[in-house]
Nucleic acid binder design. Structure first.
Length: 639
DNA sequence: GTTTAGGATTCG
């Protein structure tokens, strides 16, 4: 490239770009993908910039030469592009490399020295450029929030994407599509890093150093397109790994206890700028990292990491308005959320000690650990709830249903009520121990014909429990009925009003106003038998299966008991199905063991983030405030 | 001189 003395470049503001032109621009980096090998012949980087006009421009930059692409390390960096072609794609203006494209990059920090990063041997750089960079820095400091993705290992939470600045300690192939990087940044993760099993593959690196650093070294597995990059990295080099994903995993060790490990994955693809970039020694963040690495005292790191203490102190101070802070409580700032909010994200967190002093009703966002919960036997938490009268009742047991069925089996089905336009009827005589019993089954018709058996709704009279069990294996839906004076009637709301396979649907005795069975003919769809529709035409107010639990929550400032009443939102498990599914019971138990790890100190428990509401309860003359959890669910990664 | 990608997380 030749330098023309006195030549002046004109820079086009981003709000004045025209389709088909080739321009020079300045901008602050809002988003970027570190350069990666495209599926064509070149390296590619995608960069979105913004300038004082507040207009954004996304640029697709290609070059066969990795170094020729802008050397961007983080959002907020400032770039100057020469000979950028402007085009329109899908109604959006975009920039793309044109012949002779060239880029300079600058640190975006106010006051930092203005040193252009470029691989070009010759380039123009005037006092005018210097001013432009400083003006953009000044503007960005007021208009762009600083990058929050850069975290130290001691700050990471489970289930999070972040950018890690680290040093490479070791590397090894795992299999064809994944590759292991052992890295450190001098701080300790809130949970021990997972250890990736290497079968026969040799770990390249200083093994004695890795052993000495023990829990300061973490295992990062990179996948697919990142493998070839990882292979070329040199041990000891400084890296930034972009959009690294953490995942908390419970691991069963040989001893009966389970432990929680933190996994680090760099998933395949380049979404959200996933990738790896080598940082040069001259980088200011590398400078800071080196100082941390040099000051690490390997004996001290067994406990708390000094690097994080000041940050912890700040967040503990802002969280608790009173009380002293113990070193253990400092660790609590590590904000490991095993639950997520599904609404009310705008709320500020309130410490429990403050909530306990306030009047009801109110809604709060809290951060706490699950110290304990009741009932411990999880099947005891399943109840039936009436959304109309708000009463809770126990789920009837088999023995209750058996008694009701036995009682009704003593009555003989009325032959006048058989074979109507709604159903075809069949009756049997069953020889029982003491005598004989009549059973009637009424097969509900669809458009005057009988559907396939897996879509049948049958009405049964006189059948006992074990017969109901075998009938429910064959038929989609069963309604228990008896012969009334003019029509068939629902048997009894102490029994289910509808049985579908293992699931029994109950109705509220207080709120239901029963209607004639013949009303089933008003259902237009007589094949899917949706419980709520069946309930509606029969005048039944259906009861909801819910988990009812008491959580004892503790955030270090106070302890609070909160109810959880949930049908399927919090655990993402339907309460209606858990009683008949061993798999779901195991799943729920596993979730509770993660929220409240048995046999562990509370220090290692994960943090929960919850929305709770307070409300007044009057019991005789006694008034108290109760709390209920809502709009909260267990984090995806725990399920 | 063409193509690549065209921001928008997770199989592991």
């Amino acid at each position: 490239m030749s330098l023309i003395p006195g030549s002046n470049y004109a820079y086009t503001p981003l709000n004045q770009l025209k389709d088909g032109t080739v321009v020079n621009v300045y901008g602050v980096v809002k988003f970027f993908k570190p350069p990666y090998l495209s599926k064509g012949t070149d390296y590619c980087t995608v960069v979105t910039i913004v300038d004082q006009t507040n207009v954004k421009l996304t640029c697709m930059l290609f070059s066969g030469n990795y170094e020729a692409l802008p050397i961007i390390y983080k959002n907020g960096d400032i770039v100057r592009f020469h000979r950028l072609k402007i085009q329109v794609y899908k109604n959006e203006t975009q920039g793309i490399t044109s012949s002779g494209f060239s880029a300079l990059t600058f640190e975006g920090t106010l006051g930092a020295p203005v040193i252009p990063r470029t691989s070009n041997k010759v380039f123009t750089f005037t006092s005018e450029d210097h001013k432009r960079v400083e003006a953009l820095r000044e503007w960005a400091s007021h208009h762009i929030s600083p990058s929050s993705a850069l975290l130290q290992l001691c700050e990471v939470q489970p289930m999070q994407y972040f950018d890690l600045t680290c040093q490479l300690l070791g590397k090894a192939g795992v299999d064809g599509t994944s590759f292991l990087l052992k890295v450190w940044d001098g701080t300790r993760t809130p949970f021990p890093s997972w250890r990736v099993l290497l079968e026969g593959a040799a770990l390249e690196g200083d093994l004695s150093q890795i052993r000495r650093l023990k829990n300061l070294a973490v295992d990062v597995v990179v996948y697919d397109n990142h493998v070839h990059v990882a292979k070329t990295l040199k041990i000891g080099s400084f890296l930034r790994i972009y959009s690294l994903h953490t995942k908390l995993q419970s691991v069963n060790s040989e001893t009966q206890s389970t432990s929680l490990n933190l996994e680090f994955h760099l998933h395949g693809g380049t979404s959200y700028g996933r990738g790896i970039r080598v940082l040069p020694e001259s980088n200011s963040d590398v400078d800071k990292l080196k100082k941390v690495l040099e000051s690490v005292d390997l004996t001290a790191t067994q406990h708390l990491n000094p690097v994080c203490e000041s940050q912890c102190e700040d967040s503990i101070q802002s969280m608790s308005s009173s009380g002293s802070v113990s070193p253990y409580e400092m660790e609590r700032c590590l904000q490991l959320f095993a639950t997520v909010l599904t609404d009310h994200n705008y709320l500020e967190k309130t410490p429990l000690c403050a909530i306990l002093k306030q009047k009801a009703p109110r809604v709060y966002r809290i951060q706490a650990k699950l110290r304990s919960y009741k009932p411990r036997r999880l099947f005891q938490s399943v109840k039936l709830y009436c959304p109309e009268c708000h009463t809770l009742q126990e789920v009837p047991q088999d023995s209750d249903l058996e008694t009701i069925l036995q009682e009704s089996a003593t009555k003989t089905p009325d032959s006048k009520l058989q074979n109507t336009s709604l159903y075809d009827s069949n009756t049997w005589t069953v020889k029982d121990d003491p005598g004989e019993r009549k059973v009637a089954i009424h097969f509900v018709k669809n458009n005057n014909t009988l559907p396939f058996s897996h879509k049948y709704l049958i009405l049964t009279e006189g059948a006992i429990l074990r017969e109901i069990y075998s009938l429910s294996d064959t038929f989609h839906s069963i309604i228990l009925v008896r012969s009334g004076s003019e029509d068939l009637e629902l048997l009894d709301l102490s029994a289910p009003f509808l049985i579908q396979r293992e699931i029994r649907h109950y109705g509220c005795k207080q709120c239901s106003r029963l209607k004639p069975i013949q009303n089933l003919s008003s259902l237009l769809d007589k094949t899917s038998w949706i419980p709520s529709s069946v309930a509606e035409v029969l005048g039944v107010v259906p009861l909801q299966y819910v988990f009812v639990m008491t959580f004892t929550l503790d955030d270090g400032t106070g302890v609070l008991e909160a109810y959880l009443k949930d049908s399927d939102h919090f655990f993402q498990i339907p309460a209606s199905e858990i009683l008949t599914s061993d798999d779901l019971q195991d799943k729920m138990e596993a979730i509770m063991d993660l929220l409240c790890p048995p046999g562990r100190k509370i220090d290692i428990y994960p943090w929960l983030e919850c929305i709770i509401k307070s409300y007044n309860v009057t019991n005789g003359t006694e008034q108290k405030i109760c709390y209920q959890i809502f709009d909260t669910m267990v984090a995806d990664d725990l399920m």
